[in-house]
């Protein structure tokens, strides 16, 4: 009896191990395919419209022109002041380098009706600013449709990516985030001097969203 139990246990473990192994391979392939889509791009330029929807920032929508050339050239031209999320396409390319991360399969989820694989990336380097990134990769075309990043100091942020046509780059990015500690306890610059005692505690978390709409893409692929 004991022998047969042991056999069943070993068999079950082998099965489980095999299943896990096959999932890791699938995830790595998925990541590779997804990275390949972006890494094939030698350069691109696009017009962008940036809409900032943050409680404590009031500014009109801004237009700008961006240029990217592999591997590190990134240029933004705008008439006035512009706020852009740091987590753009360039950092995403960096994060998709599987050699620098522990890759963990985290299930599947449907986003906007499309089946997506959820992949957790944990940086191997202990000094990394990022604690954990989670990617939602669409199974049908390997496109990244959502990224959630937890940083060690700057809170967490979520990026939703929307695609049009067959382009490998998004037509819209919705960048949702939380920032703590952006408070002006004494309104010394306002009309009157008011002390906001609640804000003095400095633990309020402000949520916000930045929407970047891309148009007039000009993409050059590597030969």
């Amino acid at each position: 009896m004991k022998k047969s139990m042991k056999r069943i246990l070993v068999f079950a473990l082998l099965l489980l191990n095999g299943q896990l192994f096959s999932q890791v391979v699938d995830v790595m392939q998925l990541l590779d395919s997804s990275a390949q889509l972006l890494q094939n791009i030698e350069s691109y330029s696009a017009d962008i419209l940036v809409k900032v929807d943050v409680d404590f920032i009031r500014m009109p929508d801004k237009k700008a022109h961006i240029e990217y050339r592999s591997p590190n050239h990134y240029k933004v031209e705008s008439d006035g002041f512009l706020i852009l999320p740091k987590m753009g396409m360039k950092p995403m390319l960096k994060q998709l380098d599987a050699d620098k991360f522990h890759v963990v399969f985290n299930g599947e989820e449907a986003i906007d009706g499309a089946n997506c694989v959820i992949v957790n990336l944990v940086p191997k380097e202990r000094k990394s600013k990022v604690a954990l990134s989670t990617f939602w990769i669409r199974k049908s075309d390997y496109r990244i449709v959502r990224v959630e990043t937890f940083t060690k100091k700057s809170g967490s942020f979520l990026v939703d990516l929307y695609y049009k046509d067959e382009l490998p780059l998004p037509s819209e990015m919705h960048f949702s985030f939380e920032v703590s500690g952006f408070n002006i306890p004494v309104r010394f610059i306002g009309k009157s001097i008011e002390m906001d005692k609640a804000k003095l505690k400095d633990d309020e978390v402000n949520a916000g969203k930045v929407i970047v709409t891309f148009s007039n893409y000009n993409i050059r692929f590597q030969n």
Binding site: S78, G80, L82, L84, F177, F182
Partner: peptide, 12 residues
């Protein structure tokens, strides 16, 4: 507090 999350372009 915003510089960790955003990049700023332009001269304020």
């Amino acid at each position: 507090n915003l510089e960790n999350t955003f990049v700023f372009h332009g001269n304020l």
